[in-house]
């Protein structure tokens, strides 16, 4: 039972990181019907940006306030990068065939990845210990402070995003743009602004995810974005791509699935099982867990 609960805690921690990153994929897909392959690399970049802000801007301060400022500045920087990315790589291809935009996304992924390598170098960089190493032992189940922070902050951010999209006027505009861009435009919605907003939100959430990766695992490499991007992408599909609560549920489920497979079967097989799960989902329920079955117009 101890092992089960411990794996549950592990799974929820990595699951919430997957979910934060998956939101970026799913929101962009929801509105633009584009898989933003550069998103994983944006997440990696945010870990490096956070590290630079810590060393250069904050003068290596480790107070709670400093950590909050690092999160805010990183999210702000990555939001700007996200908007620029959309302007340069995706907007010119808005009316081009879908494949062109996907190729552009893959290109942007490589540009960002190699950009990180040029700026920060190919070596693994080590993230500072910004969260004190505090652990609580509940009858053999050990939970660390960083795990609690990751889980709580992720849930708060996801709840906030859910309320924003479901309950506000701008949120309604986002939903409208995801259903039909032309109709939304006729209703007086500035679709370009909505898309920019999507990239701001997605990139900021990805930035928080990237900082969590840095804080939790400590070692960051320029090419780690691919790995996390792929997991988040699978999480988004699992929950139903384009669906915001779906990405949250997909991320959590994928994290738990991974932890339990690694714990009870073999960590070697965790990746293989993840992809088998993806294939099964695509066969049994192609629209994902929460995805709606859209009737094909004939």
């Amino acid at each position: 039972m101890d092992i089960f609960l411990q794996q549950l805690a592990n799974g929820l921690t990595i699951g919430s990181m997957f979910a934060l990153v998956a939101l970026g994929y799913t929101m962009v897909y929801g509105v633009m019907k584009l898989i933003n392959f550069a998103h994983g690399d944006m997440v990696a970049a945010s870990a490096f940006v956070g590290l630079t802000i810590y060393t250069q801007v904050m003068g290596q301060a480790t107070s709670l306030l400093a950590v909050i400022v690092i999160f805010l500045l990183t999210a702000l920087t990555m939001a700007c990068v996200g908007v620029i990315l959309e302007r340069l790589a995706y907007r010119p291809l808005r009316n081009a065939p879908r494949l062109s935009a996907v190729v552009s996304a893959l290109g942007a992924s490589l540009v960002i990845q190699n950009g990180i390598m040029l700026v920060w170098g190919p070596r693994m960089r080590i993230f500072p210990e910004l969260v004190p190493q505090v652990y609580w032992d509940f009858n053999g189940v050990v939970i660390s402070m960083i795990q609690v922070i990751i889980l709580v902050l992720s849930l708060v951010l996801m709840l906030a995003l859910y309320l924003f999209v479901e309950k506000t006027r701008v949120g309604a505009a986002v939903r409208a743009a995801s259903i039909d861009q032309d109709a939304a435009r006729l209703m007086g919605i500035n679709v370009n602004s909505i898309i920019a907003l999507i990239f701001i939100i997605g990139s900021s959430l990805g930035a928080v995810g990237g900082l969590f990766i840095g804080l939790y695992y400590r070692g960051i490499t320029f090419n780690m974005g691919w790995q996390y991007g792929l997991y988040a992408f699978i999480a988004a599909i699992l929950g139903g791509i384009g669906n915001i609560p779906g990405a949250m549920i997909g991320g959590m489920l994928l994290g738990l699935f991974n932890a339990f497979i690694a714990g009870y079967v073999s960590s070697t097989w965790a990746d293989a099982f993840t992809f088998i799960l993806l294939i099964l989902i695509l066969i049994v329920r192609p629209t994902g867990i929460l995805g709606e079955r859209v009737a094909e117009k004939v």
Binding site: I3, Q7, Y217, A259, F260, A262, G263, S267
Partner: peptide, 20 residues
Amino acid sequence: RDKIKADSQNFTPVLTNIKS
């Protein structure tokens, strides 16, 4: 005798089993 995947970063599942 356990094996981990290099660069996978998340070794907690394996370690949890080791702990038991």
